[in-house]
Simulated assay, not measured.
Amino acid sequence: MERKLGFGIIGTGSIANFHANCIEKIDNANLLGVYSKSQARANQVAENFNCPVFWDMEKLLSNPNIDIICVCNESGLHSITIDKIAKSGKHVLCEKPLETSIEKIDKIAAIVKSSGIQLGCVFQNRENPEYKKLKSYISKGTLGKILMCQTSINWYRPPSYYQGSWRGTHSLDGGAALINQGIHTIDLMLDIMGDVNEISAFVDTLYHEIEGEDIAVATLKFKSGALGTLSGGTALFPGEPESISVYGTKGNIIFRGGKIVSSSVASIQQELSKLENQSGSGASDPMAITDQFHISVIMDMINAVIFDKTPFISIDQARKPVELINSIYKSKGNRIKIIKT
């Protein structure tokens, strides 16, 4: 008989509800409790998913039937939260970003190593079959030597998105457009292009009344020698699907809104499916995303716990986009070399 793992969720925002919905769809997963600071949201989760709500995190963590905790609270509280979870001996599946700075992520790494728990981070777009196809084309050399990558996350969020929220604050969001919205596409860019050695960037807040950036641009030099550009924002009405365009000596490929949309390489163009898939973009709506990729991430975490193996997105993988974004924030137009530690 397949082992059924117990889950708890910390946080009751929109992404926590998303996790709860995904857990409900997995046969060998069982949601056993939710911790919340918001009574209204907690009651809604309890009603929708028929599970107990805890106002005391320690009571949730003391439940012996819970194996994995999904961390879905404010980004800047992840390290404190993970420390408490690790001390309870439970495993962690953390929403992106793992934390808001590499210093905090390194502390998490030390906590996880000393406690012996498993920790996975949610970068669900890696599970997109269309993205896997994109990565395969590049790794097989179908585009030839890679010369350049253009990445954009030119999204829009209305002012109401930030009002009365932790979003866009330095203390809890660590910034805004790049570290909250852009990080998923930045993760994909790094996964296919490899590490960045040097950057120069500008970030600014031109529309929203927030502490973090609502617009950013950067130039990148990858370890491979390829060059790149990056743009992102949440002030760019009405919002465009995120995109990664890769150019090689044999042609290019355009990945937009979770799909390969075109290529100048004849063999790739011939393979492009005309059928619409169900993946979605959050260009103007933060919840306009499919749940199938989150389900894959949660199932990978279940297997990591059952078989005692490293989750697909490890701490080292989750650190890379935060390191790049932190460097962009620090640049202020200056060239910064990224030294790998």
Rank of each mutant, 00 (worst) to 15 (best):
S231T: 15
Q163H: 12
Y131Q: 04
E211Y: 05
A16E: 03
T100C: 09
Y137T: 03
K59E: 15
S88I: 04
Y207K: 09
N21W: 05
K84G: 07
D195A: 12
P158A: 15
A266D: 14
E242Q: 15
E211A: 09
I336F: 01
M148P: 01
S152P: 01
F18L: 11
I23C: 05
N63F: 01
E99V: 08
A235K: 10
S160C: 10
I82P: 00
K223W: 07
F18Y: 14
E74Q: 15
D214V: 10
L275A: 14
S115F: 06
S88V: 06
I302V: 09
H19M: 08
T185E: 04
N326K: 08
L93C: 11
S88C: 02
S273G: 13
P321E: 12
M287A: 14
Y156W: 11
Q44L: 14
I69Q: 02
L220I: 11
N154V: 07
M299D: 12
N154A: 12
N125E: 14
S114T: 12
K223P: 01
S284C: 10
L60S: 07
T290W: 04
E58G: 12
A288Q: 10
I146T: 04
H91A: 02
Q317V: 14
I66V: 13
V45T: 12
N48F: 11
S114G: 08
G239L: 09
Q270I: 11
A226L: 09
Y156K: 10
N73P: 00
I183C: 01
R3T: 14
G333C: 08
A42F: 04
Q317K: 15
L236T: 13
A86G: 06
